[in-house]
Amino acid sequence: MEKIAFLGLGHMGAAMARRLLGTQHPLTVWNRTPSKAEPLVTAGAVLAASPGEAARDADVVITMLADPAALDAVAEAVAPRLRPGAHWVEMSTVGPDVIEELAARLEEGVTLVDAPVMGSTDRAESGRLGVLAGGDTAGVEHVLARFGTVTRTGPLGSGAALKLVLNAAVLGGVALVAEALVLADALGLDEDTARTALANGPLGGAVGRAFAEGAHFGTSLAVKDIELAVKSARLPAMEAVLEHYRHAAEDPAVAGADITRAVTRIRHPA
């Protein structure tokens, strides 16, 4: 039986790790704040005291972390502990350059797969995420399938690259919906009428996400993701979108909240 280590138990990580409980794979978990692991430990997971301890005997290591800095800190502890034949599945949103740097840190015989996901906590809990998998996935396809539908994107780093493209589209669309409603307010239109019309138009998917309930995509994480995108190409429209999210994230109450709160802040700036 393969031993799986899951590192990073934020909103998404905890929901995803829970999908691995009840399988035949022993599950070890780690989180910087250990208390967040308690529900998983109660349900049968083993809590490790450090990332290195979690990875020491693991056949598959999964990381779901906030940003490149968090991944770098974990990699320092994990990379030396992985034995030949182990697989590292990196599922954070960090961009392809970081994946390339991570691959260079691993010993020969360790397989790295970049597999960020599309979807929020509701889809993570029900196993309906979209998994964007780059690299040699043959040894971990059965694990990735627990999280949702797997799309093989190409060579290592391609999953991380496609995630930036898709997140830029989603976050840009949500910000555009908010601006469209600013215009509707300025023109004296009824909000429900404007929202319904937008939802029935080409921005329908973005309208749904702009006012979603039961989902969580932290506004501060949106800032991080757009920053990764605008570092990769000249994107004037996304630069403007980035300023929207940065301004919203200046409010601590909004920074950790879902991007639906950022929509409110874009429409009604402080």
Rank of each mutant, 00 (worst) to 15 (best):
M1Y: 08
M1I: 10
E2N: 12
A5T: 08
F6H: 12
L9E: 10
H11F: 14
A14N: 07
A15K: 06
R19H: 10
L21I: 04
T28I: 08
K36W: 00
L40Q: 04
T42S: 11
A48K: 08
R56A: 15
V60G: 02
L65C: 10
A66H: 14
A70G: 15
A70R: 07
L71H: 04
A75T: 04
E76A: 14
A77Q: 15
A79M: 04
R81W: 08
H87T: 08
V89S: 08
E90L: 11
M91L: 00
A103G: 00
R105F: 07
E108V: 09
E108P: 02
G109W: 09
V110K: 05
T111A: 04
L112H: 03
A115Y: 13
A115F: 13
P116G: 13
S120V: 01
T121K: 15
E125A: 15
S126A: 13
G127L: 03
L129M: 07
G130A: 10
G134P: 07
V140Y: 10
E141C: 03
R146K: 15
G148H: 06
T149K: 15
G154P: 04
G154N: 03
L156G: 01
K163H: 02
L164D: 00
L166Q: 12
G172I: 00
G173Y: 00
A175C: 08
L181E: 13
V182G: 07
V182H: 03
A184S: 10
A184C: 02
A186M: 04
L189C: 12
A194Q: 02
R195Y: 02
E213W: 04
L221H: 15
A222Q: 07
A229W: 09
S232V: 03
P236T: 10
A237D: 03
L242R: 11
H244E: 12
A248E: 05
E250A: 13
A262W: 01
A270G: 14
